[in-house]
Design a protein around this nucleic acid. Structure first.
Length: 277
DNA sequence: TCAGACCCTCACAG
DNA sequence: ACTGTGAGGGTCT
């Protein structure tokens, strides 16, 4: 899984997670994905939308720039796709992500769901699972209750954001009708949401393919692969990320992100030591 | 434009 | 095994 969603767990050869109010177990088949839910499902639209199964990945990859870095990234992340997440869940999750390791984000989100999410139907004998808490529910929480979910200084951000959503100060449903820059400005009105998190939400929840989140990993990739000599100015960097990678820059970003992280994960211990010295 | 603060947890040296 | 230290999908002031 890509790491753009924080609620999936690998169980043997399957992935288990929650989409909206559905528990699901996904298993890779030779030329398909097998899905199992807890209840009888007549309309699987929510799942195909989430997985973006209609999207032709090949045609996306064709729009990437033809350079060594992108070629290496595509080769290293074969078949990587973006999910289409629920805007509120995506927004809240990424508010919780700042200066946290991905494992820690997963733990915070899990705690939040157990504490504030409604419990969902699961298969016989399966451990209980919970929906992601609604903005309405979190708006009624106290900062202290949120801090109990280990989110630290992010608690007031999440709380105030939830209240702004509930009071319709910012309307998440309306963003899809705006252009990408207007939508970004709107998201940035929320406390705890800067450029990076706004771009994550634009890309992962609304499908603005040109949104290009720059986090520490992508910054590392850009500097290493495209600006080896000198650090680019923020303005130069912004211009580069919005022009060089083409109409699906956000997709390209995700390939770079995973390329960098996979290299980190396979780093030799000797390399780790050198980094410290 | 730029530090420094912000909560907390885990990995890693020693 | 145990403890001190640093940094982690940033944002705000």
């Amino acid at each position: 899984m890509s790491g753009q969603a924080f609620r999936w767990r690998k169980m043997g050869d399957a992935w288990e997670g929650v989409i909206g109010n559905h528990w699901v177990r996904l298993t890779a088949q030779p030329n398909a994905i097998h899905a199992k839910a807890a209840e009888r499902i007549t309309d699987w639209g929510w799942l195909t939308e989430y997985l973006q199964t209609d999207l032709q990945l090949d045609s996306i990859l064709l729009t990437f720039p033809h350079d060594d870095a992108m070629r290496a990234s595509v080769a290293a992340c074969h078949g990587l796709r973006l999910l289409r997440q629920d805007p509120w869940e995506c927004l809240a999750s990424f508010i919780l992500s700042s200066t946290k390791q991905i494992v820690q984000i997963q733990q915070i989100v899990a705690a939040l769901c157990v504490r504030f999410g409604t419990s969902l139907p699961v298969p016989e004998g399966h451990e209980p699972v919970h929906a992601f808490p609604t903005a309405e529910r979190l708006a009624l929480a106290t900062e202290q209750e949120l801090r109990a979910c280990k989110m630290g200084f992010r608690a007031p951000y999440l709380l105030k954001t939830a209240r702004m959503i509930v009071s319709d100060n910012v309307n998440l449903g309306r963003l899809k009708y705006l252009n990408v820059d207007q939508a970004r400005d709107e998201l940035r009105r929320l406390p705890g949401v800067g450029n990076k998190i706004a771009n994550c939400v634009l890309l992962f929840a609304y499908g603005f393919q040109q949104a290009f989140p720059v986090d520490v990993w992508v910054m590392k990739a850009l500097r290493q692969l495209y600006f080896p000599k000198r650090r680019p100015s923020p303005k130069r960097l912004l211009h580069f990320t919005q022009t060089y990678f083409g109409p699906n820059a956000g997709y390209a970003q995700q390939y770079l992100f995973h390329y960098m992280r996979s290299r980190r994960n396979r780093r030799l211990p000797s390399e780790a030591r050198r980094r410290r010295g």
